[in-house]
Design a protein around this nucleic acid. Structure first.
Lengths: 227, 227
DNA sequence: GTTTGTGAAGTATTTCACAGCC
DNA sequence: GGCTGTGAAATACTTCACAAAC
């Protein structure tokens, strides 16, 4: 209906969230292809690689522009660069961690964030025994310095690794500090205003949603309750 | 997607996977309500609690039976029991862990699995320096004992916490050992046959799918207030 | 009065299929 | 020959709305 916007389309059509959530998969696959020295890929080949239909990949990409060449496919390097730009991965993101217990320490030591442009630059804990300690090169700060440090260092993303009972309160404080995205490891689904994105990392729920399929096949049979 | 030729004509309506994936959220909310001493809940109240529409909750539950009472709502205790039974959470699941590096050790020490009925009973590592060590009360086994131990202990679920480069090979071996469900922490999406469920725990992808919304003047905050 | 369970209606997402291009 | 980009069709999922039950 509308005329095609010229080149860089900050499009009128809202991109479905499910599409955005798939882009990182494309980024990862394309990164691996780059490492393998593969320079061109078709939607068919990419689909085989990440278990997705070629049509879905083409449709997803079409929300953001036209990146391929008919008869040939996609330049791996070009498409990767475009997707990284679209996702905002062409910049470094400073991340704050709240909670330096066992899990928090494992996260601080995890070498997988930095290469992707996520730099954990601050850590916080409510426990006075943790405060002041150095963990993976970062000094643990007391919670009352949260706003100050977040503002100083330009932190816009936080990782929450505190006990379930603390998670909502920590999220509230992060929201108050203008943090815009939160990865939450606590086994709760904290509430946050719509302008703050929250992703829950929840292995127990992952397990619980799989056991359904491991129980007897007759489990799907409806049955009326009589309580 | 691969069309599954329906051989099981018995079940009239297949339960959508997205519905199954929500059941653990209901379980968690109902568990909390139980702890708070609340005995009856309406779909409206439950929806307020976990940010979901009452209609969706009722529809989801209707795939499995009739658990509520008109005019009154749901018995928290009864519904929780039924959902746990449906998901197969009324039994103990023995879990095997592959990879006892930093992340694997954090997983072994994580106290959140056992209370939900997931008991990590074996750990494996390819590194001879890890083999034989005791971690969280479990002796680390060499990879060549995988099949033997998995069979002996009745392990049907595995957690993979190995480097990305090893993950697919480890998954292949787990599949060969008849493991039926896998939680994968490696930053890859391993392939597995359809009868094996795989869930990926991937904080980097979680971060990458959020930066999209932090980048452009895309502050299109939609989503209406609670109803 | 309240609230469930559920067909029907309404959206959202995926897949098809083919014109257009290499 | 091969492959993309995309409207249209098909499918999947969510929400509505109301009869029945308490």
């Amino acid at each position: 209906m509308a005329a095609r916007p010229a080149q860089l389309a900050a499009d009128a059509t809202e991109v479905p969230e499910v599409v955005v959530s798939r882009l990182p998969q494309y980024v990862r696959a394309l990164t691996r292809l780059t490492q393998q020295g593969i320079t061109v890929v078709s939607s068919q080949q990419l689909g085989d690689l990440i278990q997705m239909t070629p049509a879905q990949i083409r449709k997803d990409l079409s929300y953001f522009g036209r990146f391929g060449k008919q008869g040939r496919g996609y330049s791996v390097k070009y498409l990767l660069g475009e997707l990284r730009r679209i996702l905002g991965l062409d910049q470094e993101w400073r991340v704050g961690l709240v909670g330096v217990g066992r899990l928090g320490r494992a996260i601080l030591s995890y070498p997988g964030f930095a290469p992707e442009g996520f730099k954990v630059v601050a850590a916080f804990d409510a426990d006075p025994r943790q405060v002041g300690q150095m963990v993976a090169g970062i000094m643990v700060q007391p919670m009352h310095r949260l706003g100050e440090v977040v503002h100083e260092l330009g932190v816009r993303i936080a990782i929450v690794a505190v006990p379930a009972s603390q998670a909502q309160e920590v999220v509230n404080r992060l929201v108050a500090c203008d943090v815009r995205a939160i990865v939450n490891y606590a086994p709760v689904s904290p509430q946050a205003p719509a302008h703050v994105r929250v992703r829950n990392i929840d292995p127990v729920m992952a397990l619980q949603s799989m056991t359904y399929y491991l129980t007897a096949p007759n489990s799907a049979a409806k049955q009326s309750a009589s309580r």
